[in-house]
Design a protein around this nucleic acid. Sequence first.
DNA 1: GTCTCGTAAATGTATATACAAATATATACA
DNA 2: TGTATATATTTGTATATACATTTACGAGAC
Lengths: 243, 243
Amino acid sequence: MSKVIPRYKAIRAHLEQGIRERRWCPGERLPTEMALAQEFGVSRMTANKAVQELVAEGVLVRHQGLGTFIAEVRAESPLVGIRNISDEIQERGHVYSSRLLELSEVAVPAELAAQLGMVAGAPVFLSRIVHQENGVPIQYEARYVNPLHAPGYLDQDYRQQTPNQYLSGLFPLPDVEHVVEAVRVDVEIEALLQLEPGEPCLLLHRRTWSGSKLISYARLLHPGSRYRLSSRAAGGGGASAPR
Amino acid sequence: MSKVIPRYKAIRAHLEQGIRERRWCPGERLPTEMALAQEFGVSRMTANKAVQELVAEGVLVRHQGLGTFIAEVRAESPLVGIRNISDEIQERGHVYSSRLLELSEVAVPAELAAQLGMVAGAPVFLSRIVHQENGVPIQYEARYVNPLHAPGYLDQDYRQQTPNQYLSGLFPLPDVEHVVEAVRVDVEIEALLQLEPGEPCLLLHRRTWSGSKLISYARLLHPGSRYRLSSRAAGGGGASAPR
DNA sequence: GTCTCGTAAATGTATATACAAATATATACA
DNA sequence: TGTATATATTTGTATATACATTTACGAGAC
């Protein structure tokens, strides 16, 4: 049962190997679709499919009329997948639980008004939750939600589903922005996350849009000693340029 | 000058909008390629192109013989682009400079042997550099390099190019693994990065492979108060920015 | 009732072709 | 010399078609 490998995959592999072996210098033009098609004895559209895959992954860039080149900067090079915390915990085979600290309508704090695209003092829904992995705090979540877009936000039971899960159901295919930083936290958070004194935290800011509507802004705090973001991706900071 | 929009883009947009409007429930089958083709009056291959784009981005999944479905978990949705620090600084229009602290051959520390895939005590190249943005320390880099794969590593001038740039030139299209965490640092690093006492740091572990060969392992430390990783999925962004 | 097999449906791969659009280069002209 | 124009090259989009592959489902044999 030798598996049949599609021919465009062979062309794709040939291109990837060629890049690794530096068969083409940065700025140099790679073979045209026609050249690849003839070399491999396939039609132009088959060669096109191989090239397009690498373009989609940010490995190559093409310019109409010019040719195909190695991408100078990978579009979405190394990536850190950030998922729903409860999914993440359950995928590790651990027990997820949570503590709901607050669920209320508050006035937008001045320092968050810009983030939320609202005027300071406007009403906004706020939920504060500690997420736990095997009973150990792993994330403190403070989420601000635009009441216009999610009017039922306060009526949910966030022991059954996380706010993120609720909002994902309301707004599929959101645009998401993440900012990651390392911070110190105050004593309240220190207690909630059961941190050692002075222990740093990984802070994720997460904003989600649906179309042009800003749905919510969340501050997600993880104990530095108990949490990491990680990822492995193909392709990285190669330096090459057309022209 | 009304721009001509390719027809497959219209189909793609139609599918995305349909997902946002929850026209199809999770688990439900989306229209087949033939159905889309007839609905839009195009050939099946044109509809295929639209669907394939969304599959490549992890929005949809397809099963031969079954149909097309909304992806339960976005394969690699939110992403944090991590690039070469000097490129990043120069793109911000700032001045990049660096301080070379060390460039030598050392024995693999026991705690890093596993990371490097080497036995403890084996010889390894080590470079330690402080990268500066407008003269202000922004990254401390400690990089361990396999001497078998990059024998000329110690002979480079790392004021002219960063170790990452040198290695990227040697090994295009690497596989890259990142781990991000928040840590406290010792007084040496505190002084090198000009940190306030007790200021947390964002620590990036970066390992790069070429094929199956592990090329290098780098620990990249950023001042928590001066550095963030950020990204926006399905939009611009995709870089790091200081405050 | 259970198993096997055929068929329908849907996606996966591949071809040959055609024309559009963008780019660089060569050419003609003032 | 400088500028406009034509041309060749290359990628972008689109079609119509063909056959392969996977899956579910139902019909028929036992």
